[in-house]
Simulated assay, not measured.
Amino acid sequence: MMFRHILALVLMLSTLVSFSASVGAEEQDSVHAQELLARAIAYYKEKGDIALATFSRQSEFITKDLYVYVLSADGLMLASGGSSSVLIDRSVADMKDASGKSFFREMLDTAKAQGRGQIEYRWVNRQNGKIERKIAYFERVGEKILAVGYYLPHGTSAQAEALVERAALAVQADPAKAFRDFNDLNGSYIEDDLYVFVIGLDDARFRAHGALPRLVGTSADLLRDAQGKEFIPTMRDKLRKTDKAQIIYPWKNTVTGKVLIKHTYLRKVGSYLIGVGYYEN
């Protein structure tokens, strides 16, 4: 009995450490992005437009998925060390991100009015080829706007809730087609680190799993959370008398590999449990 309590304590502490490390990593990405921007600004002030070529090639201004890009005051892409390099010499003032947001226009207007700022948008991460949330810090230097952004792979609560509602409608319309769509790793039901899973309420078997399609047909009740606890029976119990519920548990993020606290929205459609979870920051 004592050994089981000690094991549970160790698992809990391990989860908390992993959670803290992941949050710390995101804070570090923010700091590194701001540091890179500060270095780029200093370099540009020293070298002038000669610096634009340096920013666009493999150099000390490109580190992993962090890079510098530069816009003219009227929205011409002048330099980029990342995926936006294909836009160099093109006007991006009215270009929209993957969600339809005119983020370059907002950046230009803010830089003109305030000199600096930050903006969130959705952009292709060339490390994995996926569209992810990104935050960019930017500052105006003369007639140029220098920017550095970092990726936020975590989906939001609003995204998760919207996705589970969309998934529920799809299951109502055509369950078989919906399950195929949910299992498509390149489909429209994968957003950042959000995905849809479906479990039979009667037999507890997976009908779909957007992150691990190989689980389809297996018993969901065999799963344990990051602390070794059963949680699928709790999900099923919550939907016995209602069509909507929520549950919180520690789980490994499929994108970052870190253990985080996951908050999952549940919906019941017929004899199916539909879930989409997001990781708390």
Results as ranks from 00 to 15, higher is better:
126 R>E: 13
182 F>L: 08
160 A>N: 06
180 R>P: 11
111 A>N: 04
172 Q>H: 10
114 Q>W: 00
151 Y>S: 04
115 G>V: 02
85 S>P: 04
221 D>P: 06
199 I>N: 03
141 V>E: 11
124 V>S: 03
117 G>K: 00
165 E>D: 09
184 D>W: 06
91 S>K: 03
202 D>K: 11
189 Y>D: 07
142 G>E: 05
196 V>D: 08
105 R>V: 02
124 V>E: 11
190 I>M: 13
221 D>N: 15
191 E>F: 09
169 L>G: 12
128 N>G: 07
161 E>K: 01
173 A>R: 11
218 T>K: 10
133 R>F: 14
126 R>T: 09
172 Q>S: 05
165 E>N: 04
143 E>I: 01
195 Y>C: 01
136 A>F: 07
217 G>H: 12
85 S>Q: 04
192 D>S: 14
217 G>P: 14
170 A>N: 07
106 E>W: 00
163 L>P: 08
147 A>V: 03
96 K>M: 11
208 A>Y: 07
83 S>M: 05
208 A>T: 13
152 L>E: 13
105 R>Y: 11
218 T>V: 09
116 R>T: 06
187 G>L: 05
192 D>T: 05
92 V>C: 11
146 L>C: 05
139 E>W: 03
189 Y>C: 07
113 A>N: 11
159 Q>R: 01
85 S>E: 05
215 L>H: 13
171 V>H: 10
148 V>R: 00
155 G>A: 06
169 L>M: 12
176 A>W: 07
89 D>R: 03
191 E>Y: 09
163 L>H: 01
93 A>I: 09
124 V>M: 04
108 L>D: 04
127 Q>M: 05
83 S>G: 12
181 D>M: 13
222 L>T: 15
109 D>Y: 02
90 R>E: 15
127 Q>N: 09
175 P>I: 08
185 L>R: 15
159 Q>F: 02
220 A>R: 04
138 F>Y: 14
204 A>S: 15
190 I>A: 10
209 H>T: 10
92 V>M: 11
117 G>L: 03
188 S>C: 03
127 Q>P: 00
223 L>H: 06
186 N>V: 02
162 A>S: 10
177 K>W: 15
158 A>Q: 15
222 L>I: 09
168 A>D: 06
112 K>S: 12
108 L>K: 03
112 K>P: 02
206 F>L: 04
218 T>Y: 08
214 R>K: 15
172 Q>V: 03
93 A>D: 13
172 Q>A: 08
129 G>E: 09
193 D>H: 10
205 R>Q: 15
133 R>A: 08
181 D>S: 14
198 V>S: 04
156 T>H: 12
202 D>T: 06
103 F>M: 02
175 P>K: 05
153 P>G: 14
203 D>H: 14
106 E>R: 00
115 G>C: 02
215 L>D: 10
124 V>D: 05
111 A>E: 04
226 A>F: 02
111 A>G: 11
191 E>V: 12
91 S>A: 07
225 D>E: 06
138 F>K: 00
186 N>A: 08
106 E>F: 01
203 D>F: 12
101 K>V: 10
117 G>A: 03
166 R>F: 08
100 G>L: 00
208 A>M: 08
125 N>A: 00
142 G>N: 06
119 I>K: 00
103 F>E: 04
95 M>P: 10
120 E>Q: 05
